[in-house]
Nucleic acid binder design. Structure first.
Length: 245
DNA sequence: ACGTATGTTATCCT
DNA sequence: TAGGATAACATACG
């Protein structure tokens, strides 16, 4: 569920309901880090997302849903596992499970820089390159997971972007050529949209070239190691992906 | 059946 | 004290 494109899919499914500023008639669930009565009888102004964050925006506060690793949602359906947050409108309902729910005070724009979201219209690749240049010692396998630079990128996107750009995960930012640095940043967005398309078609895993693979498309062995300070599983081909040093 | 994981953060160590 | 390791969340998949 968790990476950025999956949140876009949730947003699109809600759009298809054609709710216009729906009033919350009932609030359910065991989310208890804020008073759920805050939402009651208030109108939702918009549904937004920032990377892996799903945002339900009210007049002067926003409910933030983060699905973490195991989170899920159902629209106009429910299931047996404990409900974290349920919002009931006149005709529809949204149910969120196993997620982190937080309430952000004030205008949502004060909480987020939309330029960091690789899938947003506002995405700013120049700003991303600038941030990367300020961390020359960082490894590419770590920076791709940095939500302040590549909001929405997760471990699948990380591995696929590194394979597509033929960059070894342990390459330091300082050692990338300007062209490779640019390719890295551009592919973070580009692959995210392929992810979105394939996820909708239910063919995402079929298109993986490195993530979860035993061999790359050229039949070389794929190595699998926990790399970087993030210690996330990294799948890479030492023949196809160059270590810049 | 069991091991692993598309993620993040609080807390406990050193 | 900064940093790293660990646990926690509680589900789905192969």
């Amino acid at each position: 569920m968790p990476e950025g494109p999956s949140i876009i899919i949730l947003r699109e499914l809600i759009e298809e309901l054609h709710l216009s500023k729906p009033e919350v008639l009932e609030v359910a669930g065991n989310a208890k880090n804020f008073d759920k009565d805050r939402l009651l009888h208030k109108k939702i102004q918009s549904f937004k997302s920032w990377g892996k964050h799903f945002l339900i925006c009210f007049d002067d506060f926003t409910v933030r849903i983060h699905f973490m690793l195991f989170g899920s949602y159902l629209i106009n359906q429910s299931k047996k596992i404990p409900l974290k947050l349920g919002l009931i409108f006149k005709k529809d309902e949204l149910n969120f499970y196993t997620c982190k729910v937080d309430l952000l005070e004030g205008n949502v724009n004060q909480h987020y820089n939309w330029e960091n979201d690789v899938m947003a219209d506002e995405w700013n690749c120049i700003a991303a390159i600038k941030k990367l240049k300020n961390m020359p010692e960082a490894l590419v396998c770590d920076v791709l997971l940095d939500q302040q630079i590549f909001s929405g990128v997760g471990n699948i996107i990380k591995n696929e972007v590194l394979y597509r750009t033929r960059i070894h995960p342990l390459t330091k930012i300082a050692n990338l050529t300007p062209a490779k640095l640019k390719a890295l940043v551009n592919e973070a967005r580009n692959y995210s949209f392929d992810f979105l398309k394939w996820k909708k078609e239910n063919t995402l895993s079929k298109h993986w070239e490195a993530y979860n693979q035993k061999e790359c498309p050229l039949k070389h062995v794929i190595d699998k190691k926990e790399l970087g300070k993030t210690h996330r599983q990294t799948y890479y081909c030492t023949k196809c992906q160059k270590l810049y040093n």
